[in-house]
Nucleic acid binder design. Structure first.
Lengths: 156, 156
DNA sequence: GGGTCGTTCCGCATCTTCTTCGGCTTGGCG
DNA sequence: CGCCAAGCCGAAGAAGATGCGGAACGACCC
């Protein structure tokens, strides 16, 4: 009677899932505490976490820094549409955008736009320069649509 | 000749900024390494990091878990428009949405929609049930627009 | 100009935590 | 029934984290 354990989880058991869940909430929980929490020895826990990183289930550990505290109080979501005759260059273009300090996330999406950029800038002038110089000023971009972000909350 | 140090950074010096930058890239860098990297003693470094957490510059530490590995391979960005006669309920409604396991981010935005939901679901059926039951099925929601996410990259 | 107060940083000592390694148990298979 | 592979455990050495007393620095007020 365990109809929900093996889904499409490629080789992850319920202990792995618990570890992922705990680390997603608190990425700095000590290995000891994690081990006790999921019911295995610390050494085992360590082995599992290392494996989770190697297979890519855990992509990294990051501090969640409030952009407002590092001089970037203006946040926006910019929808970008690529010219239809340049669709094959989307990947490289978006990769270059990911290198801009203001860019925090790049979402490749379906719909009338090709991707969404989540950016955080020092002021609206910086935001404008990104849109006009790095996006609209490029031959690849057919159009953009900018939405100011008033607030951003993480889920769960 | 330091025209760029004191901006609107509320009491943060360049060492704090370096710490934030380093921890944003690697949230598990040991305190020792951090201290050496920014040029202060480990104890001082620890004090500063604790302060950064207390004032809210660091909102938390999280593992970046690939949703595909935890049985949620389908990601989408859902734009939600609230009925104009229920705008004052947006906050509570969005807060309740943040409790749904599938919801990873809530962005309150300007524009024709009121907020964006970044969700990760097990399959399109789950995605549909969220849209129809939790969003469109609600009296508060005037409309939604769903964009599948093909890929999601973090910036810098 | 000098003294004092407050703040920040440092270095040390201690305690916790991490990490590795060899051995053990378990389960599958011949 | 015995062998093999995989996973787990526990202990010990190494590394890191943390709290505290003291010193340096700067500001401010006599």
């Amino acid at each position: 009677m365990m109809p929900d354990s093996p889904k499409d989880l490629r080789g992850l058991d319920h202990i792995d899932l618990e570890l992922l869940e705990l680390l997603e909430v608190d990425g700095r929980m000590p290995n000891n505490a994690l081990a006790e929490r999921v019911g295995v020895a610390p050494s085992t826990c360590l082995t599992r976490i290392r494996r989770l990183r190697e297979i890519g289930a855990i992509r990294g550990f990051h501090a969640d820094v409030d952009p407002a505290w590092i001089g970037r109080p203006i946040q926006a979501m910019i929808a970008v549409r690529i010219r239809s005759d340049a669709r094959d260059a989307i990947g490289k273009f978006a990769a270059s955008l990911a290198g801009i300090p203001a860019v925090r996330d790049v979402y490749f999406v379906s719909g009338s736009y090709d991707f969404l950029l989540h950016v955080a800038t020092a002021d609206v002038a910086d935001l404008r320069s990104i849109i006009t110089e790095r996006l609209s000023g490029t031959h690849l971009v057919a159009g953009t649509e900018t939405h100011l972000i008033f607030e951003h909350r993480r889920g769960s």
